[in-house]
């Protein structure tokens, strides 16, 4: 009996331990790699013997280290892709959440565009994105949208609006219709009902949807890789450039990955309170 419990407990911890390693080792590897000098990139230990910030500096001033890290060509400074990513992700997220809110309200309260319509919005998510890349590229080439911010924002927001609709519809469904009816009877116009009653109540939903969509946009690689070249290059595309034709710049790549993860981690930390109320909305209602 006693032995049985010990076995069960230790098994439990072994499973948890394996899972933690599985999740954390790659993260730890990236963190330590970012601080390792060129000579230690391919070694099998974690803690760098001669920690350095060179990997970070080379991201912003690539010309300083030409040749030193075995690079055969210069990678553009990271500033532009970083700004591009921030602008594109943020604007596409805002657009998706706004459009998603109104669509979700219509779907929840007026059942538009019908039960199949709302399901249909998921259809584009059921095929691999690679399927859409070629046709979109042809469209964009003809519309002059290749390698533009506008092109990426339009594409990202139209792809992610699906998630906004589905997340927000759940939140709006949870608001009793009577609340809106009461407001209506007391003299509020439909617009007022929407902005004074519904909008404040789905605020946690807007945060959840916004965060989720922002992360999707922030990490999107495939579309950006195909549709951008110089002008509108995003961070994930830029990260991928460090290993390939220019050489094997593992250190700078890890450093940039680290920088790239600061934004979502910070956002997640700031709004975790909202996140909790968001995910448990049905329980805290009223």
């Amino acid at each position: 009996m006693k032995w049985g419990r010990i076995v069960v407990t230790s098994l439990k911890y072994i499973i948890i331990g394996v899972f933690i390693l599985w999740v954390l080792v790659p993260v730890a590897w990236i963190i330590t790699l970012a601080f390792k000098p060129y000579q230690e990139w391919r070694v099998a230990y974690f803690i760098p013997k001669q920690p350095t910030l060179d990997n970070f500096i080379v991201l912003f001033k690539p010309e300083v280290f030409t040749g030193v890290m075995g690079a055969t060509a210069i990678v553009e400074p990271v500033t532009k892709p970083l700004i591009n990513s921030l602008v594109v992700s943020a604007l596409a997220t805002v657009l998706a959440v706004i459009v998603g809110f109104f669509s979700a309200y219509g779907a929840s309260r007026y059942n538009t565009p019908g039960p199949f319509g709302i399901f249909f919005t998921l259809l584009t998510r059921m095929l691999p994105p690679a399927t859409f890349v070629t046709p979109i590229m042809v469209y964009y080439a003809n519309l002059g949208l290749l390698d533009t911010h506008l092109g990426l924002i339009a594409l990202y927001s139209s792809v992610t609006v699906t998630y906004a609709i589905w997340i927000l519809k759940g939140f709006i469904d949870a608001i009793p219709v009577e609340w809106e009816e009461a407001a209506m009877l007391e003299g509020a116009s439909p617009t007022k009902v929407l902005f004074k009653v519904v909008l404040p109540l789905v605020r946690p939903g807007l945060v959840v949807a916004g965060l989720f969509i922002f992360l999707l946009n922030w990490t999107e690689l495939l579309f950006a890789l195909v549709l951008t070249n110089i002008n509108a290059v995003t961070l994930p595309v830029h990260i991928s450039k460090y290993v390939g034709a220019v050489g094997q710049l593992y250190g700078p790549q890890a450093a940039l990955a680290l920088i790239g993860s600061i934004v979502p981690v910070t956002i997640g930390y700031i709004i975790q309170k909202h996140l909790v109320t968001g995910f448990t909305f049905g329980m805290v209602r009223g």
Partner: peptide
């Protein structure tokens, strides 16, 4: 409804949290 000048108290009181 909003132009009828009637008001309704609902079973599950419509109070905005």
């Amino acid at each position: 409804p909003r132009e009828r000048n009637v008001c309704l108290v609902f079973q599950e009181y419509a109070v905005f949290p």
